[in-house]
């Protein structure tokens, strides 16, 4: 029994690229079927093009480095018990889970500490290069730029979630060692506010456009970086 037109369209809509012999026979059976198949093919071309989102250039390299990151995480896990009390470990583990389970933070301080626990240490370990070009590319998305003094010491940079949308996570190769800076384009902060978590110190900075958090150890005197960050992440020329 030959396929009727509505069944033909249903099968076509489910799998336009199907090479099912019955479908192909039906297609050839009349101009109406043939036209429907041609229309479906055209729509499929559009659909295939629509879903083909661009893939970040570094993605495959980042995936390929996963084993090294796993190794870093494992070594961190071996080190932490020697340094931290068991109770604190549980707190960190819970916070790490919270990072993924619930991105709605009660405060900027909560966000900064959660964020740092998530991948702060792993990124610090990777900050051995210079990525000035990437700095400008990523920041341009938020209509800001990094002035040369800052851009020159960025060792690693990536997009990251913030309480109010996408932001940027950087590690600076400062004179006192690697320091984390999180740029938050749409999150208001209390300028100069300092707080501590897990033995780290954090300092919030109000910028001309957006805000930032500087995170480091007490020995790194992160307050000395306030002026650099405040003065070096500026609206891009022509940005309103």
């Amino acid at each position: 029994m030959s396929m009727d037109f509505s069944e033909f369209k249903r099968l076509l809509g489910a799998d336009p690229r199907s090479r099912d012999p019955e479908l192909l026979r039906a297609r050839a059976s009349s101009p109406e079927f043939e036209q429907a198949a041609a229309d479906a093919e055209r729509f499929e071309g559009l659909l295939a093009r629509a879903v083909k989102l661009p893939v970040p250039e570094q993605l495959i390299d980042e995936i390929r480095s996963t084993p090294q990151q796993a190794s870093t995480r494992a070594s961190e896990r071996r080190w932490w018990p020697m340094a931290m009390a068991a109770g604190l470990l549980i707190a960190i583990g819970a916070a790490g889970l919270t990072w993924r389970m619930n991105p709605s933070w009660d405060s900027v301080e909560d966000y900064v500490s959660d964020h740092y626990r998530h991948d702060g240490a792993a990124l610090l370990a990777k900050a051995d290069g210079r990525v000035a070009n990437e700095v400008q590319t990523l920041l341009a998305e938020f209509n800001v730029e990094a002035l040369p003094d800052l851009a020159a010491i960025v060792g690693v940079i990536k997009y990251c979630p913030t309480p109010d949308g996408k932001g940027v996570h950087m590690v600076l190769n400062s004179e006192n060692g690697p320091v984390t800076v999180i740029y938050m384009p749409d999150t208001p902060v209390t300028d100069h506010m300092q707080f501590t978590f897990d033995g780290r110190e954090a300092l919030l900075v109000e910028l001309k456009s957006g805000s930032a958090a500087i995170i480091g150890s007490s020995a790194q005197q992160i307050s000395n970086l306030y002026a650099l960050i405040q003065g070096s992440i500026v609206p891009a020329p022509g940005a309103t």
Binding site: P56, L59, E62, I63, T66, Q69, R100, K158, Y159, C160, P161, K166
Partner: peptide
């Protein structure tokens, strides 16, 4: 729907 989260998911 989000680049940063997608990268996290892939990682």
């Amino acid at each position: 729907g989000n680049d940063a989260l997608a990268k996290d998911l892939i990682q």
